[in-house]
Amino acid sequence: MTVEEHALEHAAPGHHEARTSTGLDNVKVGMWSFLASECLFFGALITTYLLYRGRTLLANGQPGPTPAEVYDIPFTSVSSFVLLMSSLTMVLALAAIQRGDHGRTRVWLLTTALLGATFIGGQVYEFTTFVNEGLSISSSPFGSAFFVLTGFHGAHVTVGILMLLTLFGLSMGGRLPTENARTVEMVGLYWHFVDIVWIVIFTLVYLIPSE
């Protein structure tokens, strides 16, 4: 169902939701506003990283780990790919519930959550490795900026996983009927946003060399 049909349906008299001035769904306008706001949130974090990525000296003046030394590009490429593909499964879940195919909806919701969890697992592994190599949140400005940026992104993914699992549970209990496809669409918008933030991070943080 397109949003227009959605709007038309909601515009029909007798429906529980009041018609809106623009015909656009309230929750969806709210969600896009929130995502617009998140652009500034991650913008500030990425800016801090770009400013600090070359500042790798330790507090005692000794050279500390540099981006080029710690980043494991093949590993991060794979986990980036995993997150990218979770966007596909997310949108497939939405397509499934919009056609009323609740079995598929559950399969894709769960797959998306698992792909997200895989990504988070990769991040935990990456963080552990970096700490072992001497890069921590307090080792250098580069360390602070890296961990706080990717950490906040990871926190966003984790919140997304919780929402996906909640949807999955609701669907299992029969409490996610086709009329609630919009809820899946909203979680989807959030999930895709977290994915595009990673697309930017993957390029600006990992691939573009810092020297």
Binding site: V3, L24, V29, V91, F193, I199
Partner: peptide, 15 residues
């Protein structure tokens, strides 16, 4: 991703 998965190509331009 924004245009297709998030449907901005198909939804209202306001979004």
């Amino acid at each position: 991703v924004v245009l297709y998965f998030m449907h901005l190509r198909f939804d209202s331009r306001s979004f």
